[in-house]
Simulated scan of single mutants.
Amino acid sequence: MKKMVITILAVFLFSLSFGTFAAAEGEPQTPKVKLTEEQKTELAKLHEQMYSTKKELVNKYVEYGVFSKDQGDNVLKMMEAKYQKLKENDYMMRWHPHSHHGKRLDQKE
């Protein structure tokens, strides 16, 4: 009797979790929020600081021999492309931009 109750409870919990995943599938990846110009300016400043710090970090890795010059240039080129895309999107980050999640950064909703 105890095994049967546990089995029924497990099936019930499993069915609840499946419904949650199915409901989350259709949700947008970014909230539909309009940032004010002040908010965009503040985000731009913070992203610029992060970008310049990351560039400095990559250059140090190249200087110390962790990355080759070509590897460092490739990383910087990818970072620049991501930063430009972020600027184009008014600093609205997209969550889970990986192709295996079904969305790409350059894909419009």
Rank of each mutant, 00 (worst) to 15 (best):
M50V: 09
K2E: 13
S17P: 00
L57M: 08
M93L: 11
Y91G: 00
T36V: 10
L86M: 14
E56T: 13
V62N: 00
L86G: 04
G19I: 04
K77F: 07
G26Q: 09
Y51S: 01
Q39P: 11
E63D: 10
W95N: 06
H101P: 00
A10R: 01
M4K: 13
D70A: 15
M78D: 15
H100S: 05
G65M: 06
E109V: 07
T30H: 12
K55V: 12
L43N: 00
E27T: 12
M4C: 05
E42S: 04
L46T: 02
V33M: 13
M50Y: 12
L35F: 14
Q49H: 05
K77S: 10
V33E: 15
M50L: 08
E80M: 04
H47D: 12
K54C: 09
H100I: 07
S99D: 13
A10G: 11
Y64P: 02
E38H: 09
Q29T: 10
K55M: 05
E48F: 06
V58R: 03
K32W: 11
T53P: 02
K103Y: 15
F14A: 11
T7L: 13
E37D: 15
V62Q: 02
D73P: 04
T7H: 11
L57S: 15
S68V: 12
M92T: 11
A44M: 01
A81M: 07
P31C: 13
P28N: 01
A23Q: 15
H98G: 02
E88R: 09
V75Q: 14
T7Q: 13
K82L: 05
V75N: 08
Q107F: 01
A81W: 15
L76V: 09
F14Y: 08
N89E: 05
P31L: 11
L9W: 06
E42Q: 06
S15R: 04
S68D: 12
E38T: 10
H47C: 09
Q49P: 06
